[in-house]
Design a protein around this nucleic acid. Structure first.
Lengths: 108, 108
DNA sequence: AAAATACATCGTAATATTGCGATATAAATG
DNA sequence: CATTTATATCGCAATATTACGATGTATTTT
């Protein structure tokens, strides 16, 4: 046990859950917000900005990269990260779709 | 370690992460979707609908309840669950706010 | 080429999540 | 009041996540 039973859910449900998981951590939210605010893509600054160890930040960046949300470009000794606007929009659309469902007030 | 360092993030970031975490699981997404579709609030049907054990469903319901997303009303021997429209809207607004940020295309 | 700089990855410890069988609890029914 | 029905909770096992020190790697600088 301890393993999510993805087989029993729809592809859409699994995908949405994976997307949400990618951003369901304060550090990753902070990273995303900083990447957006800083516009020009930063990298090692994140270690200073947030108070986490370099290894930890690197790990979070990797997860965001796996999710497709960010891109990293090597620039000399450093790596420049930035949001992928296309994937960002996909996320936005997917979540809008989920929350578009109307909730009826006549509850139990 | 293994403990998220909530102290170093803003209240907003932590709250958003918690909200996302609550729905970042296919089973909970499926539960929410079924509760919305079934409109009239169902309960034990979820055990049949999804292929998870009763104890597992109950645990997911508890998490959704903790998140404030659903309400449970005792109705005889069973419990009727439904989405809380107010909290649902709060979620929607919070996520819209997050994804409202404009992404610049001039990346690295 | 050696040293410095900036990241990534490895290994590990601590904690959290997922899932379920077994059992408890509470209301309805006979 | 015993039984059934429906759900919650406990306890456990398996796996995942979070965090970080130590170390590896690649590029620049000296």
């Amino acid at each position: 046990m301890g393993l999510t039973k993805t087989e029993i859910f729809t592809e859409k449900q699994n995908k949405l859950a994976t997307m949400l998981k990618a951003i369901a951590h304060p550090a990753r939210i902070a990273i995303i917000q900083h990447l957006i605010k800083a516009q020009a893509c930063i990298c090692g600054d994140l270690v200073e900005e947030l108070g986490l160890a370099q290894a930890t930040i690197s790990q979070h960046l990797k997860e965001l990269k796996n999710a497709g949300l960010i891109q990293g470009t090597i620039e000399g000794t450093s790596v420049c990260y930035c949001i992928d606007p296309k994937v960002w929009k996909q996320y936005k659309t997917a979540l809008e779709g989920f929350f578009a469902m109307e909730i009826s007030n006549n509850c139990c």
